[in-house]
Design a protein around this nucleic acid. Structure first.
Lengths: 342, 342
DNA sequence: ACTATTCTTGAGAGCGCTTCCAAGAAATGC
DNA sequence: GCATTTCTTGGAAGCGCTCTCAAGAATAGT
């Protein structure tokens, strides 16, 4: 059994209160007493019992990361691993912990909510939900559970962190425009995901900036899968695009495979740009030009924001939304390198 | 503020003890009283305060997942996401939670150990460490923290779950042997990782089964990275292999790129087999023949084993090691399909 | 009908910690 | 030098829950 405060106190010849003060760095303890207490602590290998402490402080230092059902299947996509890595890094720094809350069905979501989020173990929550209208958000808002949204929430007053999907897509498409392309198609993502909406908006803005009217036959929705990308490319081909902007690398790879089957060369016949910069993007031939997102930073920022929220609800501005910039990674699939590079 | 047991008791006109019994499904409560208590619970939306409960039961239902330093960088590899997915699935089923413990440096590891693993928040730990001699294992054994090892621990008496790296590698190499190859090289993994050791052992066993002496010039160690794979392939080429077994897909992809640069065709000039079946394996051209591991099951099994350990240390056999089978996925890079398929 | 057994219930201690309060010690002001 | 303020310390309550214990109610046994 681990030693308790009481035993440390006895060993140091002081009261429980004094030991507690030493542990918690309260100023009003005589230096020599403080030293004696530390000695006793070291001597018996005392570690504060976090559970007992939490019972009175009402803080556990545990942050939940909620990844809803629809996304669990996408878990092989490196988004979540990178997000978690960034989040844990900041957590380690700030002496907090991350608890993983994934579920595979909506019933699990409800059960999880009641059992875990309302049981006092979790100080606050990071919600990484890509879908437009997640029910969890309303529940948490109702119950006053502090949370930060990763992505773009419906209600803009909800604290959130996001990458600049609009800007990233716009940059990608403008890159193609600058290369001379005028018939640029897009394989958009699922219409109910905000990231997909925003990337489509970026596509629109780029065309608008070049005064090119939007041609509906050049816009097809995929589902962020490789097969979806192949299918979308097939439907797009009759419209005769000279370039394609895919809202995700996975779909771009699907498109690439379809084009290869169709006997078309990338980038010579059709230029291709993706989004995400997943590892596979640089494994395919030709390597994919794509938009890289600072995902670990996003995770870290989410934690930072949440901890800020927990510490000072007073200092919290009514609206808090942070958007991180993206970066265009130019490789072979867009044709820019063969045009200028050699 | 959430209601407490006391308030529910008052509402139902019974004592705190009785409400506690109802909550915990103790048998000796009159049915009508039980119903009255449930009514009160629903009425005021009572949720038990898990922290308070844990203080007395000495159980939190939280399991830690430790992924040591050396691996954090490999986090883009889909191993951990899949492991976590399998683990959370079982956790949800068994009403447990997963806490993520990653660190970026050995100092963080020590700090984490003292602060998190010994503070009473965690019932048990899943250690996913690929390196041969992790210091954490000794610490946890010393302090009596229940844990399950994912991979192959040095000390075989430690409860562990693993995939059959030896068997998987052996099957892969025997597949090449059956295709007629006799000069088979291997790009092995880092010598200090058990998975790499075991895959190399599988390579050896396959050759032995075919009575082919081991040629040291056909064995080169890589570091589980793409660049490492390229470098290894370069060093291997002078030895004149007709086939290569890479201990990871990432390295196989590196090898593939080098071969392409060298003007060699896969599988016509050199056959290639990988290990892991990462998504990129089927994105490259030609698609990689590789060994698929049941990683989500591995994660689930780790949780199951750990929970078993926690419930009944009595029933625990002195040695508990579970090894899951792997599966050879035949695609184009090994040449089997062009030989038989058409 | 009376005793022996089993059910049902409430009182109360206690899990390990923080924190309020009050008392005594030390420091300060005039 | 004495009253007043500030430091330092210990006592004790209490966070919300579980669980033992004992008492009273209900049931069974003869």
């Amino acid at each position: 059994m681990n030693p308790t405060l009481e035993q440390v106190a006895q060993l140091a010849g002081v009261s429980r209160s004094t030991v507690s003060r030493v542990i918690n760095n309260h100023p009003n303890v005589r230096p020599e007493v403080r030293e004696r207490v530390w000695q006793a602590i070291r001597e018996c290998g005392y570690r504060p019992h976090a559970v007992a402490r939490s019972l009175v402080t009402r803080r556990t230092g545990i942050l939940g990361v909620v990844i809803p059902e629809s996304l669990t299947t996408l878990f092989t996509d490196p988004f979540f691993p990178l997000l978690l890595r960034g989040a844990t890094e900041v957590c380690n720094l700030r002496k907090h912990q991350l608890m993983l809350l994934l579920f595979n069905d909506p019933a699990g979501e409800e059960e999880m909510y009641q059992r875990v989020l309302r049981n006092g173990y979790i100080d606050g929550v990071i919600v990484a939900s890509a879908t437009v209208n997640d029910p969890l958000v309303n529940l948490m808002a109702r119950d006053g559970i502090p949370f930060v949204f990763v992505g773009r929430p419906l209600d803009p007053s909800i604290p959130s962190v996001d990458v600049d999907n609009v800007g990233g897509a716009r940059t990608a498409v403008e890159h193609l425009l600058r290369l001379g392309h005028r018939r640029i198609a897009t394989i958009a993502g699922p219409a109910n995901m905000t990231s997909a909406q925003d990337r489509l908006e970026g596509y629109r803005l780029a065309l608008e900036a070049y005064r090119i009217p939007l041609d509906e036959s050049l816009v097809v929705h995929g589902d962020y899968t490789e097969d979806g990308g192949m299918l979308a490319m097939q439907r797009l081909l009759p419209a005769g695009p000279t370039a394609v902007f895919a809202a995700s690398d996975i779909m771009a790879i699907g498109a690439l495979k379809f084009l290869r089957q169709a006997g078309l060369r990338v980038p010579e016949d059709i230029a291709l740009v993706g989004f995400d910069d997943i590892p596979a993007a640089s494994a395919v031939e030709p390597r994919l030009t794509t938009v890289r997102q600072p995902i670990p930073q996003l995770g870290g920022l989410a934690v930072e924001t949440l901890i800020g929220l927990l510490q000072g609800p007073r200092a919290r501005p009514s609206m808090q939304r942070i958007v991180l910039p993206t970066e265009l990674v130019v490789r072979e699939s867009c044709g820019a390198l063969s045009a200028f590079g050699r």
